[in-house]
Simulated scan of single mutants.
Amino acid sequence: MERAAILKLKARYFNPKNLQVTFSSKRDNELRLAHWMFRMMGKPAWAKAGGLATRWALRLGLPIQPLIRNTVYKHFCGGETAQEAQQVIAKLRASRVHTVLDYAAGSQKTEAGFDAVKEEILHNIQLARDTAAFSYISLKLTGIGHKAIFRKMQEAGVLLQEEKQALARTEARLDAICKAVAEAGLTLYVDAEESWLQDPIDAMVERMMLRYNHQRAVVFNTLQMYRTDRLAYLQDCLERFKKEPVIPGFKIVRGAYLAKEQLRAKELGYPSPVFTSKSDTDHSYNQAIDICLENLDRIELCAATHNEFSTCYLARRIRKECTKQQRQRVHFAQLYGMSDNLTFNLADAGYHVSKYLPYGKVATAVPYLLRRAEENTAITGQMGREIQLLEQEMQRRKH
């Protein structure tokens, strides 16, 4: 179903506990596979050992790719190519769920690698234009530009001439992607990176917003709300953009690099840039929702979260307070293979919701999959909730 058709659906009461809607597209064997995987992921020691073993097996060329492809890869990825992912996209679309197509290439290190990622993204934009099957593209700037240059800029270092030229090529790649996205009527979500890379990335994304976000939010920047400075950054953005003819796009997430951020801060002896307690992160996230809702007349919001409270809180406020025009400016998103009770029940209730759908070769997607496993074993209660819902559905189907 096209975006315009979905938006005509009036937002209704959202019930994340409706199992029939949650699992309507899942076969019994898919439920059993998901149950097994989440049980494994729910054991941090097993998940860590499995990740280490997987990395070594791939480096040694051991024949484990078929096992990965038929288990964790199948559950969390759309396929090895964008064309292969079309089957999953069509399945999601049948449930009124949009797709954010995410090329799981990871960070690149060479100019050839950066150019290859850019060409793949441009190919996906053309595919979206040709098929009208999906409307959203995800991009990591470390996929099209050097991490070391972003880090040097963050530290206020002076770039060498060749580094300045490399940075210009990075921005040109991003501009080409944003231009193609704008012309195709699509939306680009630029992912957040580690805190020691983020400032120059924020600045580059803001320049793209000023260039392309005139009639709508073509480009979204991602804010990791576990960072202690993101509320201030959000408010500063809103103030700086107030007099600009631009509609900023903000995607808010809780954050993906918690342990890495805390460890680096401890090792280098600087204050941790992330909250130490989950409750502080939750409060920051929900405050960001409030700020964005107060400014819906001039921004667009994507709330990318697996947190049920935040999702219910935002859905309730949309239903009670937002006009039809304002509702069109709010999006929800979850990862493919996770929190289906949120995604499919949001769609069923008439809200605008997407799944982040990664795709790529098994070997190159493994780092993405392992990061997903490590993140979710660290989220209090996440695995338990997934397992509980699956067990309830399997029990329900027996009767």
Rank of each mutant, 00 (worst) to 15 (best):
Q165A: 15
Q165L: 15
L167R: 14
L167P: 02
A168G: 05
R169F: 08
T170M: 15
R173C: 10
R173I: 10
A176H: 13
A176E: 15
A176P: 09
I177K: 08
I177S: 09
K179D: 12
K179C: 10
K179W: 07
K179H: 12
A180K: 06
V181G: 02
E183N: 12
E183L: 12
A184H: 04
G185K: 00
G185E: 04
G185R: 00
L186N: 03
L186I: 04
L186C: 08
L186Q: 15
T187W: 10
L188R: 05
V190P: 01
D191T: 06
D191Q: 06
D191V: 02
A192L: 06
A192D: 07
S195L: 02
W196R: 13
L197W: 09
L197I: 06
D199C: 00
D199V: 10
D199N: 09
P200M: 13
D202C: 02
A203F: 06
M204G: 00
M204V: 02
M204N: 00
V205E: 05
V205L: 03
E206H: 11
E206Q: 13
R207S: 11
R207T: 09
M208I: 04
L210H: 02
R211A: 13
Y212M: 02
Y212K: 03
N213T: 04
N213M: 08
N213Q: 06
N213W: 08
H214Y: 05
V218C: 05
N221H: 12
N221I: 09
L223F: 15
L223W: 12
M225S: 07
M225F: 13
R227E: 11
